[in-house]
Design a binder for these strands. Structure first.
Lengths: 352, 352
DNA sequence: GGAGTTCATCGTAGCGCTATGATACGAAAA
DNA sequence: TTTTCGTATCATAGCGCTACGATGAACTCC
């Protein structure tokens, strides 16, 4: 078949003609070109007030909603930030994501959420789909990722922020604090209260590397002063819950005779330990001092109120947002400012 | 200037040539056409095993990541579900979102998250941007929305699921339970325990309409048996926290002499009340019985363990996912199945 | 008055993919 | 042998928008 006949029987195939209102419709009604409408939408100051008003009127008359998918394709970068956290059920990450979402939304960026359930393979899959959106940035939790994940992200050229942990080599940028130092702070605090027979109660530490690092920071600091013999690290394979706290306390008491202080990887665990002490009539802090981590909602109000370490998930969210936004505005921060230490604060209350 | 010269000085403008690996590159390497690659990616069974293998090899060699933005534009519907909740810090919604995200991710759908902070205007803005993504579905919380929000969503033709509440006219589909009935259940339970001088402790009830409905359901049921005189509804303008629970309990005791039972709009509030009782030496449940709502992590473990109502945020998430997925597969459910009642369960523990 | 300089606006080529209908090629049926 | 049918593959027209460069008109400056 020759080109002629091929051309001949080419029929203009019709496509599901969306009756979506397009920018073209707005342009026609406002008597300007589509480019002007696009320009108005992106930088209103660049079009004349007269035209601007006309366009605004047309938009509201037609109920025009811009198609960000098309915009993203044309601009080769969508107004999307992909956030991957281990679990959104975790109050820490919920707080960070919440703050981050607010800050980014204020600049017209959407948040796409994924959770990895502490699995590196799952994280890798999430990163893969995340990149498929040509996102403005990708936010990951922690510094431990599969080599493939790092490769993918590096190759993509997309700004990457790793949050909730510093102290290693970030892929691109990092915002967080040092987990070993958190453990050490807890240890020093217990030591300062004269405790020498202590334990660290953690949950899911095979997968939650950050919790594991808090534990080893704790053990190291204790070892320096009191010797390792009197420091146990107890792990609960399941999630960090109040119930896990009860179980862990009992195991700790078995393992460390005359236990007089515990640090918990999470305030929920600490609360569980507190409840268990109450149930067994163990005086807190007289007999056992308790330090938590997270400064959750209830920590100031429980009985006794909980000494804990506040990591400021909120501040992390804000800093991540700042990093992303300055990154998008052009100059990506270089050098030292690529890693931000948000620190941690020990809040002393009645439980120690 | 005539058309000729216009044509003449048209230079092929170069555009920031992304060196992104495209489907075309894969096609070239695999010696097939781009359509075949696309087809393989969408329905692998439709291409021959030989071609499929060749394509798979090319994809992995090049590290090809499909561009979902382009795909979404071409297919006129992106693989995105937009979820809008009042607050992700709230454990209820965190649970639902988490479940929903997992279920949808399994089908290749992404979740875009927004939170409205209980503001209808903010919700409207979120819906507007959500629609700009041509999402596969939009998920909202509750049945109360601004008229403009309803109009936008109806006009868009996008499947809409409203969750966490039923008992009104949904925009499209709804999954949840009746909040007045939850209040009534709590009331009946307290009445069955012989309590007659009761209060409902709520937070943020101006904005949180669902909490307000639980309160009025509670008051109504109490009024039917014990008369309204002995039932107070106390509201805390701030968020539903443990601390609010303490404050609210004190106000309730002032307002209702010989208070002997409380229902709380949230387990955190109940926990605060429990702590306050402990602090003041008020016996629970002997003197005051406490019913919560939510069955949060700590509710089974606290002292005394908390009688509460479980709304199953998890189940809601699953059902919403099911509705969305069947909707996408073609036939949108009609009639009664557009509203799913996930019910609620009262879990009796030691606090009553 | 002519040459520059702004400034607002416009025309249109892609962005990378999917959907549509066409087509090539065997196998089965006539 | 011819016709029909099915299957695998292909070519290409958009999807709706943004970015690029062009075009005039209005000003400014010698």
């Amino acid at each position: 078949m020759d080109a002629g006949s091929r051309l001949q029987n080419r029929t203009p195939r019709k496509r599901r003609k969306m009756q979506r209102v397009t920018m073209m419709d707005v342009a026609k009604l406002a008597q300007v070109s589509p480019s002007t409408v696009s320009l108005y939408l992106r930088k209103p100051a660049a079009v004349s007030p007269a035209a601007g008003q006309e366009i605004a009127r047309a938009i509201s008359t037609l109920g025009y909603v811009p198609n960000l998918v098309a915009g993203g394709l044309a601009a080769a970068s969508s107004k999307v930030v992909s956030i991957i956290v281990p679990s959104i059920r975790n109050a820490f990450f919920a707080e960070t994501v919440s703050t981050l979402q607010s800050e980014l939304a204020a600049e017209g960026l959407q948040v796409i959420l994924g959770h990895s359930e502490y699995g590196e393979d799952q994280e890798e899959a999430l990163v893969r789909t995340a990149l498929a959106w040509a996102p403005a940035a990708v936010v990951l939790t922690g510094l431990s990722h599969s080599p493939e994940t790092r490769k993918l992200l590096r190759a993509s050229g997309v700004p990457v922020v790793e949050m909730w942990e510093i102290g290693g080599e970030p892929i691109d940028m990092a915002v967080g604090f040092s987990h070993p130092q958190v453990g050490a702070s807890a240890a020093r605090h217990l030591l300062s209260k004269g405790r020498r027979r202590v334990a660290f109660l953690g949950a899911r530490m095979q997968e939650d590397h950050r919790a594991a690092k808090r534990a080893s920071g704790f053990a190291e600091e204790i070892g320096r002063t009191a010797g390792t013999a009197s420091c146990a690290i107890i792990n609960h394979p399941g999630a960090a819950t109040v119930e896990a706290g009860s179980l862990l306390l009992n195991r700790a008491m078995q393992q460390v005779p005359n236990l007089d202080g515990i640090a918990c990887s999470n305030d929920l665990v600490a609360l569980g330990a507190l409840f268990e002490c109450q149930r067994q009539g163990i005086a807190v802090p007289d007999k056992i001092a308790v330090v938590g981590f997270g400064d959750l909602d209830f920590s100031a109000s429980c009985i006794p109120s909980l000494t804990t370490i506040r990591p400021s998930g909120d501040l992390i969210g804000k800093e991540v947002a700042r990093l992303i936004l300055t990154g998008i505005d052009g100059g990506r921060p270089a050098g030292a400012s690529r890693v931000i230490d948000t620190g941690h604060v020990l809040i002393e209350r009645r439980s120690t």
